[in-house]
Amino acid sequence: MAIHKLRGLEYLVAVVDQGGFNAAARHLGVSAPSVHRLVQALEAELGTPLIDRSAQPLKPAAHALAYIERARSLLDELRELDASLRDQSHAPRGKIVVAAHSVVLQFVLADALPRFHARYPEVHVELTDAGSSRDLARLGADAMLQFGWPPEQDAILRTLAETRWLVVATPAYWARHGTPAHPSALAGYPCALFKTPFGEVIRRWSFERGGERVEVGVDGWLVSDSRPALDAPLYSGQLAARINDLTLHPGLANGTLQPVLLDWHGLNAPPLSLLLRRSLARQPRVRAWVDFLVETTDRLTAHRLPAGLPPVPASVRPDWWRKRVQPSPRRGAAVDPR
């Protein structure tokens, strides 16, 4: 197969993943005319359009879906072949592109990255903020970390850690409003409200204890889809919040935040999830990254606060996720059960 055709296939897949010729060119680091030219040459050779140019963002022509997915698999296999030759008989080296949401960057990766570099000095990590995206291919990343449930896509999915919802506020807040003895009491407390990636504000918190399940409506003056935006009103004693425990260690350890309702289990806490590109999963640098993440999250979960609580059960996708997330047209994610 000629080199120009392989390049044309690479550009074609990038156009589909990025949703346009200009975006594909920026992602690939080449000029937009060169992307246009090679994709058009490929279409001319095949005698049929491969891109639906009437759609915004651009998408594959209906009859070309299978062709483009086969091209994607072929390119992934070639990259894996190249990488295996470079990595063979060597310590982990090369670059890994990691997308992560801001809360993961702040509370999971920030302190861990220096240890990773000290252990694997020849692996270069390129970090990018995933923003609201949950699509590995569109981000152009080799791996993605998020708190939550990634939509199905052509990737390996691994749950690194389960989390626990904790209802927290400052001691002064609880002294002012009273410590709730039952979840239903939260209906009268000013609380911070989270907005999902789909724009839905979570105004009902669900709890379970023994055979009793309680769902309580909460309200407050602040709604945000950004965890850091909640910290100032939370730590200043203006609001209570429901936050996953792996991001609360400093505030709990120094007593700035006080959890309540610890005999109740908050439902639908988001797991810490890892997505990996299939074609890179066996590469030494990627295996080193995954092993390090497992070690890092094991450290976090081993020092959960408050201490002495029951083990965290496996999470269940909430109703809002099941209603909003549709399966990808690509193959479903392979689940790594480890």
Score class of each variant (00 low, 15 high):
residue 2 A to Y: 10
residue 4 H to I: 13
residue 8 G to V: 07
residue 10 E to T: 09
residue 12 L to E: 02
residue 13 V to E: 04
residue 15 V to F: 01
residue 17 D to G: 00
residue 17 D to E: 10
residue 18 Q to R: 04
residue 23 A to F: 02
residue 24 A to T: 07
residue 24 A to V: 06
residue 28 L to N: 00
residue 34 S to C: 14
residue 34 S to G: 14
residue 36 H to I: 08
residue 40 Q to E: 15
residue 41 A to E: 11
residue 50 L to D: 00
residue 50 L to A: 00
residue 52 D to H: 02
residue 54 S to D: 15
residue 55 A to E: 09
residue 55 A to G: 10
residue 55 A to R: 01
residue 56 Q to H: 13
residue 61 A to S: 08
residue 61 A to R: 09
residue 62 A to T: 13
residue 62 A to V: 14
residue 64 A to G: 04
residue 68 I to D: 08
residue 72 R to A: 05
residue 72 R to N: 00
residue 74 L to C: 10
residue 78 L to P: 11
residue 80 E to S: 15
residue 81 L to Q: 15
residue 82 D to I: 11
residue 83 A to D: 13
residue 93 R to V: 15
residue 93 R to G: 15
residue 94 G to Q: 00
residue 97 V to S: 08
residue 99 A to N: 07
residue 99 A to E: 06
residue 99 A to G: 09
residue 100 A to G: 10
residue 101 H to L: 11
residue 102 S to F: 13
residue 102 S to W: 14
residue 104 V to P: 03
residue 107 F to V: 13
residue 107 F to I: 14
residue 114 P to C: 00
residue 118 A to K: 07
residue 121 P to G: 01
residue 121 P to C: 02
residue 130 A to E: 05
residue 130 A to Q: 05
residue 134 R to Q: 11
residue 138 R to W: 10
residue 139 L to K: 06
residue 139 L to G: 03
residue 149 W to L: 00
residue 150 P to C: 04
residue 151 P to M: 05
residue 152 E to I: 07
residue 154 D to R: 09
residue 154 D to S: 07
residue 156 I to D: 15
residue 156 I to H: 08
residue 158 R to H: 13
residue 160 L to I: 06
residue 163 T to V: 04
residue 166 L to I: 02
residue 175 A to M: 08
residue 176 R to A: 14
residue 181 A to E: 13
residue 182 H to E: 06
residue 183 P to N: 04
residue 183 P to G: 02
residue 183 P to K: 05
residue 185 A to N: 07
residue 186 L to E: 05
residue 188 G to D: 08
residue 188 G to K: 00
residue 191 C to K: 10
residue 198 F to W: 12
residue 201 V to Y: 09
residue 202 I to V: 12
residue 206 S to W: 12
residue 207 F to E: 06
residue 214 V to I: 02
residue 215 E to A: 10
residue 215 E to K: 01
residue 215 E to Y: 09
residue 216 V to M: 04
residue 221 W to I: 14
residue 222 L to T: 10
residue 223 V to Y: 10
residue 228 P to Y: 06
residue 229 A to Y: 12
residue 232 A to C: 04
residue 235 Y to S: 08
residue 236 S to N: 13
residue 243 I to E: 11
residue 246 L to R: 08
residue 247 T to W: 04
residue 253 A to F: 11
residue 256 T to M: 08
residue 259 P to L: 02
residue 259 P to E: 06
residue 262 L to C: 03
residue 273 S to W: 03
residue 274 L to I: 01
residue 276 L to R: 09
residue 276 L to F: 12
residue 276 L to C: 03
residue 277 R to V: 08
residue 277 R to S: 05
residue 279 S to K: 09
residue 280 L to F: 14
residue 282 R to P: 11
residue 283 Q to W: 11
residue 285 R to Q: 03
residue 286 V to Y: 09
residue 288 A to R: 03
residue 290 V to S: 01
residue 292 F to L: 03
residue 295 E to S: 04
residue 296 T to A: 11
residue 299 R to P: 12
residue 303 H to C: 12
residue 305 L to R: 03
residue 305 L to S: 07
residue 307 A to T: 14
residue 307 A to Q: 13
residue 309 L to D: 02
residue 309 L to Q: 07
residue 309 L to W: 05
residue 310 P to Y: 03
residue 311 P to D: 09
residue 311 P to S: 01
residue 316 V to M: 04
residue 318 P to W: 06
residue 323 K to N: 14
residue 323 K to L: 15
residue 324 R to E: 14
residue 326 Q to C: 12
residue 327 P to T: 03
residue 327 P to Q: 02
residue 328 S to N: 06
residue 328 S to L: 00
residue 328 S to W: 11
residue 333 A to E: 09
residue 335 V to A: 02
residue 337 P to W: 10
